[in-house]
C-alpha cells in the first residue's frame, strides 16, 4: 500500500512565471525524452513542491495505513495469518521509511513532514479514516486497497522523479505479496462457514464506497492536472485508474459469489465500467477531518511521536548534522 488518489491542489501556472524559460524548456524536453529527474538536477519550484506533496502523502498513507490493519495483528487467527499480517504491516512501515527518504531528497525533512501530518496540514489516503470492525475488514484492505495501490503505483513508477520511481519499484514488488496474502485470506472467508461468508460480505459492503473513492474525485470534477501529467508527476487520471481497478477486481469478487453494494455496477458494451457516482461531498468532508477515524488516527500518530521524542533526541549524536539521503 497505499498510495493512490493523491490530492493535488489546483496548479497555479503563474508560479511558473519566474522560471527561466530556457531551463524550463530543457527540463520539459528531458521529461519528454523519458529521462528521470534526479535530486540535484534543475527543476521548477512548482515541480519540486508537487513532487514533495505527492511523495509525502504517499508516505503518510503508509504509516497511517499501518494502523487499521495493525490492530488485527494481535488478533489474527492462527500462526500463518498472524505472521503474514505482521510481515505485511511491517512492509508498509518500511515503505513509509523509503518514501520519506525519497521526499527528503527534495529538501523537506522527515521531521517536518511528520509535524505536518500530525497537525493535519498534510493529507493521507482517505480510506484509512474508515474503521476496521472485524477481521474481514482487515482482509478486504489487504486485498482490495493494496490492489488499488498497485494500479496507482505501477503507473507512477513510470513517472519522472528518479528517487520516487526507484522506491516504487521496490514497493510494488512487496505489494504483490500483500495482494496474494489478502486474496488468500478473503478466499478462506468466502468459501468458509456461513458465519465467515457473512463477515466478508458485510466487510465488502462497508468498504466498497471508500474503495470507489480511493483513486480520488472523478476527472470531470478534479483539479486540473494537465501540467502534472505533462511533467509525469501524475501518470494516469483518477478515472483511468478506477476503470483499470474495476476491470481487474470486480470479476474476482464476483467469482467468489460475493456481491458489491452498487446496483448500477456493470461493464457496458464499450468495455467501460458503469457505477453509481461515489459521494464526493462525503469524500471532501472526510478528507477535511470529518471521517469516523480521522481524529483517532492522528491521535495515535501524535501519541507515538510524543512518546518517542526522547528516543529520537537520544539517538541524535551531538556532531550530527542534517544529511540529505542518497537518492
Amino acid at each position: 500500500m497505499y498510495g493512490g488518489g493523491s490530492i493535488f491542489e489546483p496548479v497555479k501556472l503563474d508560479e511558473l512565471a519566474h522560471e527561466d524559460p530556457v531551463k524550463l524548456a530543457e527540463f520539459e524536453a528531458r521529461i519528454q525524452r523519458g529521462e528521470k529527474i534526479e535530486p540535484d538536477d534543475w527543476m521548477p519550484a512548482l515541480y519540486r513542491k508537487q513532487v514533495i506533496r505527492m511523495i509525502e502523502q504517499h508516505a503518510h498513507s503508509e504509516i497511517i495505513g499501518a494502523l487499521p490493519e495493525g490492530t488485527w495483528i494481535t488478533r489474527a487467527p492462527g500462526f500463518r495469518r498472524k505472521m503474514a499480517l505482521l510481515a505485511k504491516v511491517q512492509d508498509e512501515v518500511g515503505h513509509a521509511q523509503l518514501l520519506y527518504s525519497a521526499a527528503e531528497t527534495l529538501g523537506k525533512t522527515r521531521e517536518q513532514m511528520t509535524l505536518d501530518l500530525i497537525s493535519g496540514k498534510s493529507k493521507y489516503s482517505n480510506v484509512f479514516n474508515y474503521p476496521t470492525f472485524t477481521w474481514a475488514d482487515s482482509t478486504v484492505i489487504s486485498w482490495l486497497i493494496d490492489a488499488g495501490a498497485i494500479v496507482n503505483q505501477m503507473a507512477n513508477a513510470r513517472g519522472s522523479y528518479g528517487p520516487y520511481c526507484r522506491a516504487l519499484e521496490r514497493i510494488c514488488a512487496e505489494e504483490s505479496f500483500h495482494l496474494k496474502y489478502g486474496h488468500d485470506a478473503v478466499v478462506y472467508l468466502a468459501t468458509g462457514s456461513s458465519k465467515q461468508r457473512q463477515m466478508i460480505q458485510e466487510a465488502l459492503n462497508r468498504w466498497w464506497p471508500p474503495i470507489m473513492t480511493f483513486f480520488g474525485p472523478a476527472d470531470k470534477i478534479s483539479a486540473h492536472t494537465e501540467i502534472l501529467m505533462r511533467w509525469k508527476v501524475k501518470m494516469a487520471t483518477n478515472d483511468e485508474c478506477r476503470q483499470q481497478f474495476l476491470d481487474m477486481y470486480v470479476p474476482k469478487v464476483w467469482e467468489l459469489t460475493l456481491t458489491l453494494p452498487d446496483p448500477l455496477l456493470r461493464k457496458n458494451e464499450a468495455g467501460t465500467w458503469e457505477y453509481t457516482e461515489p459521494d464526493w461531498e462525503e469524500f471532501k468532508q472526510v478528507i477535511n477531518g470529518k471521517g469516523t477515524c480521522n481524529k483517532e488516527r492522528l491521535a495515535v500518530r501524535r501519541m507515538a511521536e510524543e512518546k518517542g521524542a526522547w528516543v529520537r533526541e537520544a539517538l541524535l549524536k551531538p556532531e550530527a548534522t542534517y544529511v540529505k539521503p542518497l537518492a
Binding site: 504491516v89 511491517q90 521509511q97 526522547w310 528516543v311 529520537r312
Partner: peptide, 17 residues
C-alpha cells in the same frame, strides 16, 4: 508485535516487528 505502527522512530518500529 504491538509496536508495529507506533514505534518511537520508523527504524525501531521495523526492528521490533
Amino acid at each position: 508485535s504491538e509496536w508495529t505502527g507506533i514505534g518511537p522512530i520508523l527504524e525501531e518500529d521495523i526492528a521490533f516487528s
